[in-house]
């Protein structure tokens, strides 16, 4: 495992006082089985603390399904429905229909799926519920590969990334799928990206999503120290560096047209982000520059769209 060059003392100061969140929680998800440094349970905990008890979780195969507990144990404080890997969007639509038909329209249906279930095997069904604007809060915790089966590439794996199916010599040659653009093309009411390193930003977005109806989609980066070959204590640091380096900018898209950056990424920390992770160990200097240029280009697009809000935005038009 890549231990990384930094000592704990050398780490940047946390932007949010974690203790405020730790001790004010309604739910702590005590007893979960996630790996040290995992982002997924941190994200779920903070989301549930915003959504509250009138929530039903629909969850496919993946890390979240396993780490919730093994029968007869479950840490979920709210009803939790396991569904087949490819079935999350449709099953969530069914839960929505059933709750609506039995007088429980106020309950939030939270689809909680990884990048494999979302970007890959469930994409057709996800597009369908987006097109139908089903009243669901769909959250993708994105750890950028099939981590539960042991680090196989997904279409969310970054360019140049190592995985067991994109090994040395055949590193991922394609850029990460742009899920925000895909969801925006469906003109859903709300899309936002989020990070466990920016909890104020995240919880505000969850609260906003809860206020809205229709399909709301949150794309959250979920650091995976075992899969990213990083030190578990660097989980949150990596989440922060991903945002600051512009590899995972924080933004939202309203009604598929209005873009808003919710955090100004400094552009710093790109090299450090890569250095802290063994999965980028085999990238050439040229590939690193390609990845960075791609991130910068995307961030520039977001900035342009952010600045253009208030003007008429044409769907599909390049800024």
């Amino acid at each position: 495992m890549n231990q990384g060059p930094h000592s704990a003392a050398g780490r940047p100061a946390a932007a949010v006082a974690m203790t405020d969140y730790e001790f004010c929680s309604q739910y702590d998800l005590y007893g979960h089985m996630a790996c040290p440094g995992c982002g997924e349970k941190i994200l779920l905990r903070h989301i549930l603390n915003v959504l509250g008890p009138e929530t039903v979780i629909v969850c496919p195969a993946g890390c979240a399904a396993v780490t919730d507990g093994v029968f007869p144990h479950s840490i979920s404080p709210v009803p939790f429905l396991h569904v087949p890997f490819d079935a999350t969007p449709a099953a969530a639509a069914g839960v929505r229909a059933g709750l609506d038909l039995s007088g429980r329209k106020h309950v939030t249906v939270l689809a909680w799926a990884g990048d494999g279930a979302t970007f890959d095997i469930g994409m057709g069904a996800l597009s369908a519920i987006a097109e139908r604007n089903e009243n669901i809060l769909y959250v993708c915790y994105d750890n950028e590969a099939y981590m539960n089966t042991g680090i196989q590439r997904s279409s969310a794996t970054p360019y140049g990334g190592w995985s067991t199916t994109t090994p040395k010599g055949q590193l991922k040659a394609e850029p990460k799928k742009n899920i925000g653009a895909i969801m925006a093309a469906h003109r859903i009411p709300y899309f936002a990206s989020g990070s466990p390193a920016f909890l104020d930003d995240l919880t505000a977005k969850v609260a906003q999503a809860k206020r809205l109806s229709g399909l709301r989609f949150l794309h959250l980066l979920s650091p995976c120290p075992p899969g990213w070959k990083a030190d578990p204590r660097d989980g949150i640091t990596l989440a922060r560096l991903a945002v600051e380096s512009r590899l995972f900018p924080l933004y939202e898209i309203i009604e598929g047209t209005h873009y808003r950056l919710t955090h100004e990424s400094s552009g710093a920390g790109f090299d450090e982000y890569l250095q802290l992770q063994g999965r980028f160990r085999y990238m050439s200097a040229g590939d690193r520059r390609i990845l960075q240029a791609d991130a910068d280009r995307f961030y520039a697009q977001l900035t342009l769209r952010h600045n253009r809000n208030g003007e008429t935005t044409v769907i599909g038009e390049e800024p």
């Binding site: 569904v83 639509a93 057709g124 069904a125």
Partner: peptide, 28 residues
């Protein structure tokens, strides 16, 4: 009929939708 007709994009989703719906206690 006071039912919700969920117009899905595949049979896999039709059955998956009913798995979700039937789990809430309704007839599907």
């Amino acid at each position: 009929l006071a039912a919700r007709f969920v117009r899905v994009e595949s049979e896999h989703s039709a059955m998956s939708t009913l798995i979700g719906a039937a789990s809430t206690g309704v007839r599907t």
